[in-house]
């Protein structure tokens, strides 16, 4: 077979026995994980369960953290943080182009802004954007780099509920069009179920549950079949839904 097919089947991210600890407290205790190229994965966990530690390890942002294990990640990785992290002294387009140079990049930047619905706001200052708009600009910034892997650390955590639902649709849309591997870290079970095709639960420093969600998109929160997934995930998180 052509090497092209081989590339497609190769995992985008591979973790083997990944450990990370802070001041002797083990946060990641030998995580084994493979993310196939182009898969939309969500990572759930309690706060403090090490979700962000895992994401930062994959992003290569954990400089002074103890730990070992094997980690393979693609060359082009983008990260979307919980805050939009736009530089207040650069206009929106210049923020999107941070780290991408040249005329051709500027065109891609405009296109990315248009894709997230911010066409015409290129010259705005970040302080003039609403929270949702700022987060969309951050998404555009991550797209410009044409990432093979998109890491998102609770990207909608600071948004209001209505904006969040709209952003869910946008993220899924962008994923469909560009097909990066996505690792979405979240503490919101519903968000994970609605967006991802595979949901992982991080528990005691390891992947406690690995669940494939086989439902068509777009999904609705009210889909009763998603309820089963929700229950299993909540159980894995140690939450029992007592509705009595």
């Amino acid at each position: 077979m052509a090497p092209h097919t081989e590339q497609l089947t190769a995992p985008a991210v591979r973790l083997a026995g990944l450990t990370r600890s802070f001041d002797g407290r083990t946060v990641l205790d030998g995580v084994d994980l493979e993310l196939p190229a182009g898969q939309f994965t969500a990572l759930l966990g309690h706060s403090g369960s090490g979700k962000s530690t895992l994401l930062r390890a994959v992003a290569g942002l954990d400089h002074e953290v103890e730990g070992g294990g094997e980690l393979t990640a693609p060359e082009r990785v983008s990260v979307v943080f919980q805050d939009s992290r736009l530089l207040p002294w650069r206009r929106v387009l210049d923020n999107v182009l941070l780290g991408a140079e040249g005329k051709e990049a500027a065109e891609r930047g405009r296109a990315a802004l248009a894709e997230v619905g911010l066409a015409g706001r290129e010259r705005a200052w970040p302080s003039e954007l609403s929270g949702g708009e700022a987060q969309r600009a951050a998404l555009a910034r991550s797209l410009v780099r044409e990432p093979e892997l998109l890491l998102a650390d609770e990207p909608f955590g600071a948004l209001d509920a209505l904006t969040r639902i709209r952003m869910h649709g946008l993220l899924r849309e962008l994923w469909k069009r560009h097909r990066p591997s996505v690792l979405l870290v979240t503490h919101d079970v519903d968000e994970a179920i609605v967006l991802a095709d595979r949901v992982l639960v991080l528990e005691n420093g390891r992947i406690g549950l690995d669940l494939t969600i086989d439902r068509p998109h777009p999904r609705s929160y009210r889909d009763p079949l998603l309820g089963e997934y929700r229950e299993r995930l909540l159980a894995a998180l140690g939450v029992t839904e007592d509705l009595a």
Binding site: F81, R85, L87, R90, L98, G99
Partner: peptide, 21 residues
């Protein structure tokens, strides 16, 4: 430090980091 992290993620060179951030 959040901006330092951003610069790392965006793959800025040291010079670009100093100039732009």
């Amino acid at each position: 430090s959040r901006f330092v992290e951003l610069a790392e993620v965006q793959g800025l060179s040291r010079l670009a980091f100093v100039r732009r951030i």
